[in-house]
Simulated assay, not measured.
Amino acid sequence: MNVQYLSDAQGRHTAIVIPIEEWNTITAKHEDLKSLEKPKQDSLQPKPSDFRGSISKKTADELLQHTEQARTEWESIIS
């Protein structure tokens, strides 16, 4: 395999370049590697589950209570 190594200023290898023909041969044998070529569109957008654990349960409960209170007040105003 004819690969090229990229190095930083200290001479440590930081990347590798594989000729496209060899990459195509490898990905033909290992289909799962094709997912590395292009990021999935939905992976670029954060999902709500990405933020799970960002706030404490106590804070989440307080926010929920406040939201429910605001909704009740709003419904009483527009009724």
Results as ranks from 00 to 15, higher is better:
Ala28Asp: 09
Asp42Met: 04
Asn24Pro: 03
Pro19Trp: 00
Ile26Trp: 01
Ser35Gly: 03
Thr25Glu: 07
Asp61Lys: 12
Ser49Pro: 01
Trp23Thr: 02
Ile18Cys: 03
Arg52Lys: 13
Pro48Glu: 07
Gln10Leu: 09
Lys57Phe: 08
Arg52Ser: 15
Lys40Arg: 14
Leu44Ser: 03
Asp42Lys: 04
Phe51Glu: 04
Pro46Leu: 13
Pro48Met: 08
Leu33Met: 07
Ser35Arg: 09
Ser35His: 02
Pro46Arg: 04
Glu22Leu: 08
Leu33Trp: 01
Pro39Tyr: 10
Glu22Arg: 00
Gly11Pro: 04
Glu62Asn: 12
Asp42Phe: 03
Ala15Lys: 10
Glu22Tyr: 02
Ile18Asp: 01
Leu33Ser: 00
Glu21Pro: 00
Pro46Ser: 14
Thr25Leu: 04
Ala9Phe: 06
Leu44His: 02
Arg52Thr: 14
Gln45His: 03
Arg12Pro: 02
Ser54Asp: 11
Thr27Val: 13
Ala28Gly: 15
Pro48Tyr: 04
Glu22Cys: 01
Leu44Ala: 14
Leu33Pro: 01
Glu37Met: 13
Ile26Arg: 01
Lys57Thr: 13
Ala15Ser: 14
Thr59Lys: 12
Ala28Tyr: 03
Lys29Ile: 03
Arg12Val: 11
Ile20Asn: 04
Ala28Ile: 03
Gly11Gln: 09
Ser7Tyr: 11
Thr59Val: 14
Lys29Tyr: 02
Val17His: 03
Ile20Met: 07
Glu62Ile: 09
Ile16Asn: 03
Asp32Leu: 12
Ile26Tyr: 02
Ala15Glu: 14
Glu22Lys: 00
Ser54Ala: 15
Ser7Trp: 00
Thr27His: 02
Lys38Gly: 00
Ser35Met: 04
Asp61Thr: 10
Gln10Ser: 10
Thr27Gln: 06
Glu62Phe: 07
Pro46Trp: 02
Ala60Leu: 14
Lys58Trp: 08
Lys29Cys: 05
Ile20Ser: 05
Glu37Asp: 14
Ala60Cys: 04
Ala15Arg: 11
Glu31Ile: 05
Ile55Pro: 05
Asp8Thr: 04
Ile55Arg: 13
Trp23Ser: 00
Arg52Pro: 01
Asn24Cys: 10
